[in-house]
Design a protein around this nucleic acid. Structure first.
Lengths: 129, 129
DNA sequence: CAGCATCCATCTAGATACTG
DNA sequence: CAGTATCTAGATGGATGCTG
């Protein structure tokens, strides 16, 4: 038995870890690195359309800090920095497959639920309108 | 074929959905509701130790809006409101099992990676002591 | 090319007080 | 019991300008 199923403290730890890795850009970067393999900074920047350099750097540093990616600097001109998933990052990528597939399969159900909810809301707002 | 594996737009949609459902409190509430079954507001409040009423209400409303939980109000005194996972919510709960197990199994690896990273950082800060 | 430093708008989370 | 309303500190994220 690796862990008690209902240990509140463990739950909190796990939730914190998931909360840290489950943000928008981290997931997108993991997805991109899983699909493409190793990438340079600029390639990630283009693939993550809409991300700012600041967020890209920040997210990559956090991922590096948590051991999800490696950062390799080549001492050439112009500079070349390559990011690669570690085994830990690859494991996370696989672990997220289930959630990813769930989100793909159920995104319409969620959008439908939201639409219905919005309808009920507007009905409440104008009950006899 | 349900989806192209590398459709950037789909990726974004999925990432947004995951980003919305993968926050700290949502995960904790899903965990609690999965473990305990239907819960009243107060019970969730106590189980999610540290959460404020505001965040609890806010998170539950978002979950209700996205069709993850149902909210049933009993017209009694004192008020009684019961929250229950929907099939969608239950599916998400199951989908997250993989990530949950990954986080449990690798939390020490992550903490170790961070510790090593912190060491390397302090070595860089004091290169010649 | 691959960043870092800075400023600024916004969003968030929590504390507090009040209500049916 | 189960909320709502309000206020505020802090985190978040983007734009800009500069560097090796």
């Amino acid at each position: 038995m690796l862990s008690l199923p209902s240990d509140p403290e463990l739950d909190r730890l796990v939730v914190e870890i998931i909360g840290r890795v489950a943000d928008k850009w981290t997931l997108l970067l993991i997805e991109i690195l899983t699909e493409r393999g190793d990438c340079r900074f600029g390639e990630l920047s283009r693939a993550c359309e809409g991300i700012s350099q600041k967020m890209l750097t920040q997210t990559l540093r956090a991922m590096e800090r948590d051991g999800l990616v490696t950062r390799t600097v080549y001492p050439v001109v112009p500079p070349k920095v390559v990011y690669a998933l570690t085994d830990l990052g690859l494991g996370l990528s696989k672990a997220f497959c289930g959630v990813w597939e769930w989100a793909e399969s159920n995104r319409e159900a969620i959008l439908r639920a939201r639409a219905q909810h919005a309808q009920r809301q507007s009905q409440q707002d104008t009950p006899a309108g």
